[in-house]
Design a protein around this nucleic acid. Structure first.
Length: 466
RNA sequence: UCCGGCUUAGCUCAGCAGGUAGAGCAGGCGGCUGUUAACCGCCGGGUCGUAGGUUCGAGUCCUACAGCCGGAGCCA
């Protein structure tokens, strides 16, 4: 392992005159006829390159250094010196350059030192980490994920590893991927012709999870403050810049809490994690501001400082009805808010993030707590300027009779939920939680407008390469 | 899944009144320079997404298909 990261040298951690060893991949090489070559080297620790100055006195100057092209891997021994040129404070004067790996056909090396389209880079998911944009995304992704864990850890939450494979058919949040070891060319059949899943690996139908919420609620009813953070799968045939078949989701669940506690938690959560990104990824965020979305920094700053507004759904509808704006989708009580409505509320009406609370029961899930009016449930969405819904959550129905009512009303099968119902039979308490799509948060933070570019290996309909 | 757009050299694109392709970057060679996605010159490189059709002739018009992109729906 190389002793130093390039970020340490550029940050000024290493005194001038110190001898160093660095290793990385060549981005560009420029030659001076005076017999000096300038190599811009990256090792992924920062997207600023280290300038390595290699002169003709090196024994392999003509043989190796003059043949370096973009993408070659090298190991360098040298001295940290002040740079004579503009563009960097320090550079490394090489006393030894070893070529670890050549690029075997420089003309067709896909990652050229120039601007590529995001679509092109997606075709080279194995090489795009070598680009500035993907490097910056990787740094922010790490920082954001770490900040999420830190936020919960510091507040006494426990990270619960809910299962990826689920045999419960009660998740009901859209199409699921089947998990099976049956021979699909020769399926076992029951007498009535149905596939006999008792012969399958788990002895019953199994799928990839669409949410860890129901599982994490069980741990909430023992550890009080818990969360999940892991991959989630949806087999929906939705081909948009906002959807993936495999994505990561964060789902905290808090006991002895109501919908207002939930909103408060969500507000603190968003502010804390985005502040961490600004604090830890200044260079990366500046890069996004320069190249991708000039508003990304100010958007996060206002998210961090503004106090979130709170508003009942019913109140939101009346604001929308009074709005001097023509909406594509007409406004009426009982409808789900469309993206245009969400943006009006947060951008035009209140000008900051707003939590909309207490939605009509008919547009929300069975597990959300029924309000006293019998028409709305204690659900909440956090709407943010520039994106719309970023978080959705609810207080959960903790009363068994009301939960059963909802299961029945929605035509669900009570027995399927036996263990979920048990939580209401044995020491039930008010509790609440919310969900955040991790990649949606990444898009919000970076301004990268296609979700496939904020995850290393995107999976979407027809796309599972790499 | 529905609607719209795009698909020309390794990459980014131009070609548009249909007559058999061009630039920049990348690559090679040479020149110049403590250079900064350097600069200057020369060179190699394309059966114009696929399959049909119209036409004397199609990258350029028509049809189908595929892939990608955007929007909608669904949602995170």
């Amino acid at each position: 392992m190389a002793k130093l990261q390039i970020s340490q040298i550029l940050r000024g951690d290493i005194p001038l005159g110190a001898s160093v060893e660095v290793a990385g991949w060549v981005r560009t090489r420029r030659d001076s006829k005076a017999g000096i070559s300038f190599i811009h080297l990256h090792d992924g620790s920062t997207f600023h390159p280290l300038q390595v100055v290699a002169g003709q006195e090196l024994s392999n100057y003509e043989l190796d250094i003059k043949r370096l092209t973009s993408g070659c891997a090298i190991f360098v021994v040298g001295t940290v010196i002040p740079s004579q040129g503009a563009g960097q404070a320090v550079e490394v004067s090489a006393t030894e350059v070893q070529v670890l790996g050549w690029v075997d056909d420089p003309e067709t090396y896909p990652m050229q030192p120039k601007r590529h389209t995001m679509e092109y880079l997606r075709e080279f998911a194995h090489l795009r980490p070598r680009t500035n944009i993907t490097l910056a995304v990787s740094h922010v992704r790490h920082s954001l994920a770490f900040a999420i864990h830190r936020f919960f850890h510091e507040r006494g939450f426990y990270w619960i590893h809910t299962p990826i494979i689920t045999a419960s058919d009660c998740e009901g949040a859209g199409e699921m991927f089947r998990v099976s070891t049956l021979d699909i060319a020769n399926l076992p059949r029951k007498p009535d012709g149905q596939v006999d899943f008792s012969k399958d690996f788990f002895g019953r139908e199994a799928h990839l999870t669409v949410s860890g919420q129901l599982n994490v609620e069980t741990y909430c009813m023992a550890l009080s403050r818990v969360y999940t953070f892991g991959p989630t799968f949806r087999a929906e045939n939705s081909n948009t810049r906002r959807h993936l078949a495999e994505f990561w989701m964060v789902e905290p669940e808090i006991a002895f809490a109501d919908i207002y506690d939930d909103v408060t938690l969500a507000e603190q959560f968003l502010k804390t994690i985005f502040k961490a990104v600004l604090d830890e990824c200044g260079d990366e965020m500046q890069f996004f501001a320069d190249r991708i979305d000039k508003n990304c920094i100010s958007r996060l700053e206002s998210m961090i400082t503004a106090e979130f507004a709170r508003m009942d759904y019913t109140e939101a509808i009346s604001h929308l009805e009074k709005a001097n704006v023509t909406f594509e989708f007409p406004v009426r009580w009982g409808m789900d808010l469309q993206s245009e409505h969400e943006r009006y509320l947060s951008e035009s009406l209140v000008g900051r993030p707003v939590a909309v609370i207490n939605y009509p029961k008919d547009i929300k899930a069975f597990y959300m707590r029924m309000n006293d009016d019998d028409k709305t449930v204690a659900a909440m969405d956090i709407l943010a300027p520039g994106i719309g819904e970023i978080i959705g959550g609810s207080q959960r129905e903790e009363r068994l009779d009301r939960l059963d009512q909802r299961i029945e009303q929605l035509g669900l099968i009570k027995e399927d939920y036996w263990w979920y119902r048990d939580l209401r039979r044995y020491g039930t308490v008010p509790h609440a939680g919310f969900g955040l799509g991790f990649e949606r948060a990444m898009m919000y933070a970076t301004g990268v407008d296609n979700i496939r570019d904020v995850i290393p290996f995107p999976r979407s309909p027809g796309q599972a390469a790499f």
